[in-house]
Design a protein around this nucleic acid. Structure first.
Lengths: 156, 156
DNA sequence: AAATAAATGTTATAATATAACATAACATAG
DNA sequence: CTATGTTATGTTATATTATAACATTTATTT
């Protein structure tokens, strides 16, 4: 699904923005936090907590589940990653600076995730909530399906 | 959130429709399936698998996790219940006969769920997917927040 | 340099879910 | 009605995801 012409810059941008955000908020972007964010950004596929743990053990023998989950919590709280509830997995946030509701397209073929923040859609969702006299606080919208590239490939 | 004036009929309707659907599809609405669907419909709150298991043990000493999960799978496959991914919980489907995309409002105060099938919103979601050249197959939309009643109560 | 706060280490366990194989109940063809 | 195949349930074991609670280390502030 993805055509990030240069994933290296994709990754380094993410780390740079994370650093910036932490500075701004007076938070510490420790090496553990950086390493885990780096792992999550190693590709555009969602990362599983225990896969992160396994990789982390290569550099940090003493890594254990709380090591990972605490760090994921930190990254989640600060909008640097998102949790995909339908997959029990985590993905880097593609625009942590300009944030509001955002939605996910997950291709079941190539396993890649695309984050899409669409104001029209956000409006429609808020409208639905308000029609139901409901005050939305947290929205999970995850669309599973097939991306164009994979559909095309299947046709060959 | 809910004002089903008569929950007994709410429940019996659900069981009746489930029976009808199984008959139509040539499936067996066994007593285990019926009991579990009944438990899920005992209120409008999402049910957790292991809570169902605990209750089930009162009537079926030998119940074990697969007993519950297999039955949940059956009910899910046949559109009689939905899984709420953001809660790891299950809720009865309020209109299993006329089905397409449906969305959920979960009140964090009273813990009740309202299923809302809104064609406008479904259209907006499909539009977003199609803008991204994406073929949607399965949509998870779960809105957490506060319902009117709970907001009002908090104001007292 | 001491006191405080924040981050990480560590042990244990909780909560959610599935794989694999055994047995029982039901459906149906002969 | 009974042998046979199929569907459902029982059973054992284990995988996966996540958190609680307390100890230690590292950083920050006084």
């Amino acid at each position: 699904m993805y055509s990030c012409s240069d994933h290296k810059s994709c990754l380094s941008d993410a780390l740079h923005v994370a650093d910036k955000i932490c500075q701004k908020k007076g938070l510490r972007f420790t090496s553990l936090r950086k390493i885990i964010l780096e792992m999550i950004w190693s590709n555009h596929e969602p990362s599983k907590a225990y896969d992160i743990l396994d990789k982390l053990k290569d550099v940090n023998l003493s890594a254990k589940p709380p090591t990972v989950y605490r760090t994921l919590d930190f990254l989640l709280e600060n909008g640097l990653i998102h949790k995909l509830n339908s997959l029990n997995a985590y993905i880097g946030c593609s625009h942590p600076l300009e944030h509001n509701e955002c939605f996910f397209l997950f291709c079941q073929e190539c396993k890649e995730i695309k984050e899409c923040c669409n104001k029209e859609l956000a409006k429609a969702i808020n409208q639905t909530a308000s029609n139901n006299k409901f005050q939305p606080m947290n929205i999970t919208l995850e669309i599973q399906g097939e991306c164009q590239e994979c559909t095309d490939k299947a046709r060959l």
